[in-house]
Design a protein around this nucleic acid. Structure first.
Lengths: 196, 196
DNA sequence: ACCTGAACACCGTTCAAGT
DNA sequence: ACCTGAACACCGTTCAAGT
């Protein structure tokens, strides 16, 4: 079971997505194809499970960062969110890129939808409690920040950019999201913003 | 040849990406599989050609919008660029989504690279000639605007959002990009900005 | 010269036969 | 009860045989 997960990632990294076959995975995992089909009804389900394991890790960290940022100023929230996201996507980039490629080859709206919903929920809850400003349409602002964040990251991966360029784009993404948040947010009356 | 292109899109829309096979395309096009392999060395090359035809249309319109915006204020440039991009992606969304799905299933860094380079070139040339401000690192600003633009659009497609939501996100994307450009741009001395 | 489509290698999936 | 792997349907690609 865990051996099958490991085998999947190993085959993926060693042979590439186009050579990721049920036969090769079962061989590497040391079981027969038939046995694999007792655990997973089809190849799609197998890849889905492998991807879920990875996205769950990413989600846990993002949700953690959002919770930890509760009550901060909006600009600091954005900073923490982006730093966590970039960090999580940049560590072990090989696996990250390989899985990302599988995710696009596989057409998995269920998974993308679930992941998107959880990220959205976490960011929404965070932004709604910003110390220094409030937003007319929190879901909309959330959607935009998320889209910019994932869009820039995807662009980085597609260009397989250097480490230096990644850092530059990260800094710039921060500027973009912060200036956007500032543009659409309304200063909150009462208590002033707490410093980061 | 053109019949093969048409057949490919027809099969794609009628049967879906997973049922897009060489046999089905050749059947629909009224030629044998063997004949198809005289025009295209493999299935990948066929899909690449079909995608290129579509991306070339998109690129032409974007390049046109960028050229037409020469000498405007930066904010107006961004507005024209985004309006064109959204319009082009939103008209005939069925085909657009279907081809987009093929593009991700197929792994075509060559094509993505070529498209990205041409869009980048057009936006760079435009932004470098903004009437009211200049940018320290034009390629960086270009990259960011492009990433935000494509990222938001992709998110919209993945959620298969309603027409109303698309318009809302479009407006918001404009706010995001304009506030970003304003944040990183330096006011140009001399002649004042011309109104749109 | 150009087209055809049976044949081949390989894929995902199944299920009768083994233990 | 659980595992095995030959068998099946279907894919992309080729090439001897037809015109």
């Amino acid at each position: 079971m865990d051996a099958i997960f490991e085998a999947t990632i190993q085959v993926l990294l060693a042979e590439g997505a186009s050579r990721l076959t049920t036969t090769r995975v079962s061989e590497r995992a040391g079981v027969s194809v038939g046995t694999m089909y007792q655990y997973f009804p089809n190849k799609r389900a197998l890849l889905f499970a492998v991807l879920s394991r990875h996205t769950d890790e990413v989600l846990d960290k993002i949700e953690g960062a959002c919770r930890a940022s509760a009550g901060l100023a909006a600009a600091d929230m954005v900073q923490n969110l982006l730093a966590t996201y970039i960090e999580v996507k940049t560590s072990d980039p090989e696996t990250s890129i390989a899985l990302y490629r599988v995710a696009t080859e596989l057409d998995v709206p269920e998974l993308m939808g679930k992941v998107g919903a959880r990220i959205t929920e976490a960011i929404e809850a965070m932004l709604a409690g910003a110390a220094d400003m409030e937003f007319e349409d929190v879901p909309l602002v959330t959607n935009m920040v998320r889209a910019a964040m994932t869009g820039v990251t995807r662009t980085v991966f597609e260009q397989n950019a250097s480490h230096a360029l990644i850092r530059k784009l990260h800094m710039e993404l921060l500027v973009m999201c912060q200036s956007y948040v500032q543009a659409v947010g309304v200063a909150r009356k009462g208590r002033p913003a707490r410093a980061a």
